[in-house]
Write a protein that binds this DNA or RNA. Sequence first.
RNA 1: GGCGCGGUGUCAGAAUGGUUAUGUAGAGGACUGCAAAUCCUCGUAAGCGGGUUCGAUUCCCGCCCGUGCCUCCA
Length: 456
Amino acid sequence: MAQLTLFNSLKREKQAFIPIDPQHVRLYACGPTVYSYAHIGNARMAVVFDLLARVLRGIYPKLTYVSNITDVDDKIITASRENGEDIHVLTRKYERIYNEDMKALGANPPDIQPRATDHIGDMVALIETLIAQDHAYAADGHVLFHVPSFPAYGGLSGRSRDEQVAGARVEVASYKKDPADFVLWKPSEPSEPGWDSPWGRGRPGWHIECSAMAERHLGLPFDIHGGGADLKFPHHENEIAQSCCAHGHENDLGAFAGYWVHNGFVTVEGEKMSKSLGNFLLVHDLLAEYPGEALRLTLLSAHYRQPLDWRADTIRQNKKLLDRLYKKLEGFDGPAGAVPDSVLRALYDDLNTPQMIAALNVLAKEDDLAGLKAAGDFLGILQEDPLLWKQGVQGHAGSSAPEGAESVAAIEALIAARDSAKKQKNFAQADKIRDELSALGVVVEDTPQGPVWRRV
RNA sequence: GGCGCGGUGUCAGAAUGGUUAUGUAGAGGACUGCAAAUCCUCGUAAGCGGGUUCGAUUCCCGCCCGUGCCUCCA
């Protein structure tokens, strides 16, 4: 089978993926900060790296996929103050909701989902190492990473330190030796969460947690580090700086992770999703309206590195594609075959999901149902019963009849009434009932075996 | 201002230096009491201007437009 290639952000080119240890591939992807419901952008990251994990598992005997939960952060403190919820309660709640929502999108949980607050000791140790090696310094209760101590800084995002300084729009804190220096540890007010440390009671900066958790659970160097494109700078740049410097690899940006994979952003109806525009789409809300698989397929309908514009029409098209594939699978009860080469070839080419979807269409057209089913199992779609899918009564995996939809019993009563009208050749009455059903979002198909219906 | 990405048919969205993406919408046809589903057929896509080439949507240069990051953000 073909070689897996991935676009490596660190090298800015598509490369053959060569694992450090072919017996055990190691993947880390930056997970969510849990202070609110997961949005569709969180979902894209989760679905993309779930797919990458599936592909890697299909090739290599063992994969460890780590994706963290950030449960200490100023946004969390703010959210806690705003709604009066205890921080611990709040973070656990949104962590649970995140995991439920991602499950509904067909994303398998990562093998390890470490919480930042469970790794404070690792972070403190890492910071102490950096101080001992003169890559960091304490000042005013803060500990800062000294960026000039790492000349290779900026290699991932392709921006030099000077450029960053020139572009800085924020006021530089007085305790910084260099404007580019970033926080490893900062002091906490009594009302803020904090941990005792050699520098007093405080909490970690944002970037250090991923350095600590990736090292703890995967060891260094590991194979692939992923996350959203916006994390490239400064988050991932700073992770590299911390981890490489702590281990004496000041000249080797690859000493932390060999391949960096970044997924593109989701926009909504052409606009960037942002708090200020108030157009954050929550997975939780979308799941009330669409089956999880339709959302999953929509998230995969554009190549992962391209921006994905989330529009009602896009979901509609992908739902329709699923409807068609499910229809093909009606009555198919044979064993799934091997995952077809056409699908794997597309995925191995830097996760070319649009081409993968084209391959799915071809399988359906050629009635390769065993192959189609195998592909669905591999991709995390087509997991429902085809008949239940059609009627929108799936009770699990987040797919369900839309809220406020007519009950199955009520629909079937109308179907029966129409069928008897038809038998009496009372076509006017039959068409009237068809219109009523249509208004309920139900389409009736007359087949030689009698009427069947589905929701649209 | 710095760094980056992109402009493909109604729309979504890939690949590709010469040969059908795929889907969606639309048009025509078969089928149907009417529909739906399915099947068949159709439309001659590549922001603009140069260049390289026998040949460019595909490579190079310039321009225009859009967009992302540089500040918390997946």
